[in-house]
Design a protein around this nucleic acid. Sequence first.
DNA 1: TTGTAGGCGTTATCAC
DNA 2: GTGATAACGCCTACAA
Lengths: 324, 324
Amino acid sequence: MVSIKDIAREAGVSISTVSYALNGNPKVTPETSAKVLAVAKELNYRPNAAARQLKKQESLIIGAFLTDFIGAFYGELLQGMKEVLNRKGYDLIVCSGKQSHRLLPERMIDGAIILDAAFSDAELLEFAERGHRLVVLDRELHHPEINQVLLDNKAGANLAMDHLIGTGHRKLYIVTGPADSFDSRQRMIAVRQTLDRHPEVEAVIIEGDFTQATGERAGRQIVESWDGTAGVFCLNDEMAIGLYHFLADSGSSVRVGEELSLIGFDNIDLLRYLQPRPATIDYSKHRWGAMAAEQLLRMIQGEPVEHERIYVSLITGDSVKRRN
Amino acid sequence: MVSIKDIAREAGVSISTVSYALNGNPKVTPETSAKVLAVAKELNYRPNAAARQLKKQESLIIGAFLTDFIGAFYGELLQGMKEVLNRKGYDLIVCSGKQSHRLLPERMIDGAIILDAAFSDAELLEFAERGHRLVVLDRELHHPEINQVLLDNKAGANLAMDHLIGTGHRKLYIVTGPADSFDSRQRMIAVRQTLDRHPEVEAVIIEGDFTQATGERAGRQIVESWDGTAGVFCLNDEMAIGLYHFLADSGSSVRVGEELSLIGFDNIDLLRYLQPRPATIDYSKHRWGAMAAEQLLRMIQGEPVEHERIYVSLITGDSVKRRN
DNA sequence: TTGTAGGCGTTATCAC
DNA sequence: GTGATAACGCCTACAA
C-alpha cells in the first residue's frame, strides 16, 4: 500500500509536507505542492480511511438502518437522505439486521438514521448516552443526542376517518398494523379519538401486520359478515392492496368503490396500477429522508435542532363512495 | 472514549494483557481474563473499528453497490447476500452513487459486489489491479481479483423466444433494454440467434430502457400497427407490466393472452397481481445474492473461484396463447 | 515554508 | 502468563 511516507520519499520532502499539500494547506508553496500532487498521482495514492478516521475521529459516513431491504417503500426515502448527505460531503450506507448495529458504537459511522423496530429504545438511548448522534423515524425518544422526524400519523388517520365518515359511512372496519409499530399505534390513537367523537358510527377493529397477507385475511373476514355497505380503513397501503386483490380474485359481489369504500395510508407506488384508484394518505418520502439527513448533520455540527414533523394529505381516489 | 488503556489502568494490568483477554487468547489466566472482562463491561468498553482496521488491514465489511435504492427487485438479492455474510462474521452495507465508490480504494470495505452500470469497466479493473476483491453481477470482466456471477441471460431469452415461436407465433415484437445494460445486450444476442434459426418469423425490434414507461410506449406502437395476432417479448417484466397496463387502460381491443401473447423476464413480485398472469423467465434472486457473497468471501480467503452462472426457467403463465 | 515528533486505539512481537 | 514496545497511516502542534 502506498502511503504518504512513500510520497514523501519519492518527492524528497517530509511526510508532513505531503499531508499539508494533499489537504490543500496554504502553508506549502505552490511548487512543492504541485510536485507532491504529481508524485501522489503517479504512485496512485489513495488515503487510508481507517487511519484518517482514527486521527480525526470522524468517518464522514452516515448509516441508515432499516428493518429489511424489501419494500419499494424505502427507495425514495433513501434517495432523499443520499442527496442531502452527498451534498455535504458525507456518504450514506444502508444497513439491516442486528449484527450491523455495531457500526455505531464502534464509531464506523458518524451518525445513524433509524427506521427499524429491531432497535429497542433502551439500545438507542444507550448509544445516545455514549454521545452518538441519532435521528429516529419510528418512535418518540427524548434525549439531547436524539432527534425525531416523524410522520404526522394522527393527522393522516384523522383525514382518512373523516373522509369515510364525511361520505356517509356508518359502518367501518379498521385494519391495524403490528403492535410494535409506532406508526400503527399513533394512527390507532387518532382512529379511536375520531370514533369517540362519532358514537353513531359502528366500528370493527381487525388486527393486521402491515403485510398484504393480512389485508387479504381482513377482506375474507369482512365479506363473511357482510351486510350492506361499509368503509374500510387499512392503516397502510400494503394491506389495502391485499384486501383489494382478495375482493377481485374471490369473485365476491362486494366491490371496492361501490359496496365497500376503501382507504389506505402511505400512497405507495403500486397503487397506480389499481383500478379504481384507492384513496390514501400521502406524504413526501423524499422529503422525509432529506429532513432526517439534514437534522442529523445539524446535530453533528453542533447546531440546535427541534423535532420535525412530516405533513400528510388526503388523496381521494375512486375507492370511496358517497352514501348520503 | 474508553480504550483498552483505560481498562488496563483500572484492572491493574498492561494493555497487551487486556488485548489478549478481550480476544480470548488462551495465554492469559482465567482469573486475569475474568477481571479484565469485568472491568471492560463496567466501563462500557467498545472496540474502535478504525484502530483495529488500521492494524489488521481488514474491516469485515462488504459493500454492495447498486444503481439506485428504488426497485423492489433488490430486496431478495440483498437478503441473500446478507445471510451468507452475517453467517461468516461479515457485515453488509449497501451503497449507491459515484461518491461512495471511494469506500473501496480507501479500504473501508474488504470487498464489493457490483450491480451498477455507473461503474466503468476501467474503474473496476483499476480497483482489481490495486488488489481489491470484486464480484460483478452485471458484466463480463476478466481479472484474477474479479469474479463473475451472471444470470444465464441467453438461456432465458432462448426459452422465451422458443415459447412464443413454439406456440405458433409468426409475428413477434421484441422490446429491448437500455444499450448500457449487460443483461439486455446478452438477451438480445440470444434473440437474434433464435430469429436467425427461424426465418419464417417476422420480428420488429422496439427500443426500450427497462422502465414501465417504455413498456407503455411500446404498447402504443404495437397497437397502432396491429394486424391480427402477435407475440411480444419484453426483455424485462417492468416493461411487460407497462405494456400490460397500456392495453388495459387504453380500452384497446387487443387483449393480453388473446390477440397478443406476452412474455417478460425476471419474475418480479408485482406480476402476482396481474390477471392473466404474464409468462416470464424466473430465477432465484436470493440465490444470486448468496452466490455472489460466497464467491467474494472465497476470494478474500484466498481460495480459488470459478465464474458462476445463475440458471433460469420458464414460467408459462396465462399470457401466451397457442396459435397452432 | 518545511521538518520533527507525538498520538489516535489496536494488535503482535518480543523479552522477561 | 505478563509487560514493554513498535508498528498500522494519518494529522497537527511546535520547532527550526
